[in-house]
Design a protein around this nucleic acid. Structure first.
Lengths: 211, 211, 211, 211
DNA sequence: TGGTAACCGAGACGGTACGTCGGGTCTTGAC
DNA sequence: GTCAAGACCCGACGTACCGTCTCGGTTACCA
């Protein structure tokens, strides 16, 4: 017989409407007031929910934020892990188009706030970081890995290339520039990163942006 | 006659001992309790200083943290902008040695906490971000740029290479991995990044790590 | 056809075991943790009962407390309204013996807590106060009135004496002293009150405590 | 050398205006919403004060209430311990006039709420009870004792009468009836108590109320 | 003897208040 | 005019209970 000292919340009785209201409110609020002024009280008030309902189901403010991202991505057909990167045969062009989309998101004020907040929570909470890596980062990375592998098969990339390092080389510069606001993240910068990285990776026979 | 309603702090009367005590306390505390539990009250108490003395001289918690980093780097002969990257003529070897030092810092618990805190403050505060870019990032970047330029002169890198993009390609992956804790930042990873990046950058005649 | 939107509790289906568990738990708890920390949740948990079962049958915390007193007194053969005060013919001696019993209860920690709690609820809730007056106070008062009337018949008290005022004169000082904890309620004090009151009431030919 | 582990609030810096605002708000609020709905939050909000300012200076809700009574009585020239009971030589008349004033207060809705609240706090908190006994009860009792002593000197009361018991006999019934709301506390009841008590106390040559 | 209506335990829910922490401002007295 | 000290107003923290509600499971009456 299983013994439970302290009764855990009974997920079967969970209110789905409250859950959605909380996640929506969290996402909206962090976009409006920014991370430092985001509060559990504020989320609860905006969602029309008791604070306890948040504390009952999430261990931290970061976990709420994380779930609000998950909800968002699940609602999209372009969502996390649901699709694949474009593969026209032209690695350079495909990469540029994907990076342009990324640049667009990074510059969209609706995403900038929430993404900064989540990044910060992740930077502070190893547990959340692991969850993030597994549920959000890895599915995306798998899509990227697959596209590069396809390029390897087409002979456009060396077959002995370390794909994970390659992915980091391409995407990390964008995120760093965005996070630290050194300079604005422009389409031009994305192109430069893509081109330089591909050269570095030993790509051959790939298209180059029109200059 | 100039009228000043509210008196501005008179820097000439500033207590140097209080300043040092505050910066030291801030740096130590953020390392001990982490960013989320770092408080102005805590810094003031640890420094044996009134809260007002902090508010008088710094506009935000992040600014204190920032100055505590500046103070640290000024105390070192290896400090920011004071020296230059090693230049033995072997770009690959030099890069590896520099990255190994960086990996060492990223994994040092004494720096991990404070650096995360500062990174977070920067991510939230554009003004601080600008200051950071100017006072900490740019001097380091200048040293990196100089080393790469030297490699160009030696014919080890293409002369038309965009050095700033190149720098991002090399260093961003390390910081990204450190910040998000996807996986530990190892010396091996640093080597892989350096090698891949250099290949990408079209480096020729450079040394490779012994395998 | 009668329409009842909300069904009223059907007393015939009431669980007697739950009722007793609740009343017992309430009485015990208030004795253990005191009135301010007594909670419906606590009572329900201790009684192994759902909160709703309490709310279904009692309108307020005070009502539960009140019933737990009723239950207690019904369980005693010396219970409320079930007997009569001793009548040996010696009014003074009888009074002292009754007051001594009262003093004993007031100083018994098992009763002190619950009685304070009930007194407080009564002080705040006029409805409960009326119920208390009718169900607990009045039966006791009838017994006291009867004993004094017997003394009147025996010529020990003036026949025109207002018995209710007399009762107040005798018992109120004890309860006030107990409630306000001015000084401990001692047997000696009870004797002093009895003697003084009887003198005041014009008692004649009554026994006096051995001095 | 005196050692203070935790720094106690520095009373010299205490804000007198906040103190008065808190005490006034507490007194008013308890009269308006009653004891069970009186909250520290409510007092702070009404007083325009931070909650911490209340917690800094008072250990409990009851202590605030107590001080609000003290403040009230200090503001009156008829205040606690500041005067004496009327002494016209006619003990019966004097007693009736004092009791009539008491009855007036007990029936005044402005005092009923606060007094119930304070009584309840006292009933629950022995420390507060001691403070109450010393600062509010005893000064009043001294005045009463003095008046009765004067009657003894005038030969209207037996010289061996226990004055404290006598005081209880006279005043406890009134408070008891008020607290438990058995029946309304009327002037007539006060007269009956006074007359009966005086008779009991062996008073001679005292005036009686006109019937 | 099978419905069905009300009970029951359990506990999630929207709320209010708790007592504490820390934010940033302001005041006091020492220097 | 700076400094240490700390009171002040304020907002948020995470917790405890409030009183209402909904969920399955279990009597107990009725058809």
């Amino acid at each position: 017989m299983a013994v439970r000292r302290r009764s855990r919340p009974d997920a079967t009785r969970r209110s789905e409407s409250s859950r959605r209201a909380i996640l929506t409110a969290a996402f909206e609020l962090v976009g409006e007031v920014g991370y430092p002024r985001l509060s559990i009280e504020g989320i609860a008030a905006r969602a029309g929910v008791g604070k306890q309902t948040i504390y009952r189901w999430w261990p931290s403010k970061g976990a709420v934020l994380f779930d609000s991202f998950l909800m968002l991505s699940e609602g999209t057909e372009e969502g996390i892990g649901k699709g694949s990167l474009p593969d026209t045969g032209d690695l350079g062009a495909d990469l540029r188009s994907v990076l342009h989309a990324t640049v667009g998101e990074l510059n969209d004020p609706r995403y900038d706030g929430p993404m900064r907040a989540l990044t910060i929570e992740i930077a502070n909470d190893p547990e959340l970081a692991a969850l993030y890596a597994e549920r959000l980062e890895e599915p995306l990375r798998a899509m990227k890995r697959e596209r590069l592998r396809s390029a390897q098969r087409a002979g456009q990339l060396p077959s002995d290339l370390d794909l994970d390092t390659a992915i980091d080389l391409i995407w990390a510069p964008l995120f760093q520039r965005w996070l630290k606001r050194v300079e604005p993240v422009t389409l031009d910068y994305a192109d430069r990163v893509a081109e330089t990285a591909l050269r570095a990776l030993g790509a051959t026979g790939i298209g180059h942006p029109r200059t």
